[in-house]
């Protein structure tokens, strides 16, 4: 659970460092998350910064492996106009039965999950047939200049906090068995809004 301790340690400053991202991506997230339906699983809810961009009236379960991050998410959850609960859980071993959720949501999570395909397979398992996977993730660029910058920076982010900037998350979702219906570029071809179906 080294990753859990890492995130516990940064929980207090996490919101400050993500503030700029939220300013940039807020409108794109609101648009992407407007496709959320029914019973929702939010994998890697963190401090719950994205909850503000979720449509109201949903039944949401947020999971994270850091207790300190979840403490902060609970405060945000109280402002959400709908049902929301939080569980301490690892994305690679979800404690839910098969075919439980209508939608699975992830935001900048599968850059950090140690075995992304295994984690995505778990997401697929708990989704109902025809259920949606909505991912808002950063991925490796196909542009050689941007790609080299990401590869270089990934050496540092991986060593410091286990974040990979050079993952092909769209291909990983396909490897996990999802049919990717759309992938929309939000910033360059690095930050993407991805929609998959079980």
């Amino acid at each position: 659970m080294g990753q859990s301790k890492n995130y516990d340690r940064v929980a207090k400053t996490f919101d400050f460092f993500r503030k700029g991202d939220m300013r940039r991506w807020g409108p794109a997230q609101k648009d992407h998350f407007s496709h959320m339906r029914g019973k929702v699983l939010h994998v890697g809810v963190g401090t719950g910064m994205e909850i503000i961009n979720f449509p109201p009236g949903l039944d949401i379960t947020g999971i994270d492996l850091s207790p300190k991050m979840l403490e902060r998410a609970r405060w945000r959850g109280r402002q959400y106009p709908g049902k929301i609960r939080f569980c301490l859980m690892n994305a690679e071993s979800l404690a839910f039965s098969d075919n439980t959720f209508d939608t699975v949501v992830t935001v900048c999570v599968f850059c950090t999950v140690p075995h992304p395909v295994a984690g995505l397979k778990e997401c697929r398992r708990v989704l109902k047939p025809g259920g949606k996977l909505l991912m808002f993730e950063h991925v490796m660029s196909n542009n050689i200049i941007y790609g080299l910058s990401l590869k270089f920076m990934s050496l540092f982010t991986n060593a410091l906090e286990g974040t990979h900037l050079d993952r092909d998350t769209v291909a990983n979702a396909q490897k996990a068995g999802f049919t990717v219906e759309s992938e929309k570029n939000v910033y360059l071809d690095i930050v993407k809004a991805i929609e998959g179906v079980k």
């Binding site: 400050f16 993500r18 700029g20 991202d21 300013r23 940039r24 991506w25 941007y146 910058s149 910033y187």
Partner: peptide
């Protein structure tokens, strides 16, 4: 670049600052 990135990213977005700064 690393110093500027730490100073600017929290306000203006990590990737939107990191990519131009790297180049």
């Amino acid at each position: 670049k690393f110093i500027l990135l730490i100073l600017l990213a929290p306000f203006f977005g990590a990737f939107e600052v990191m990519i131009p700064l790297s180049i």
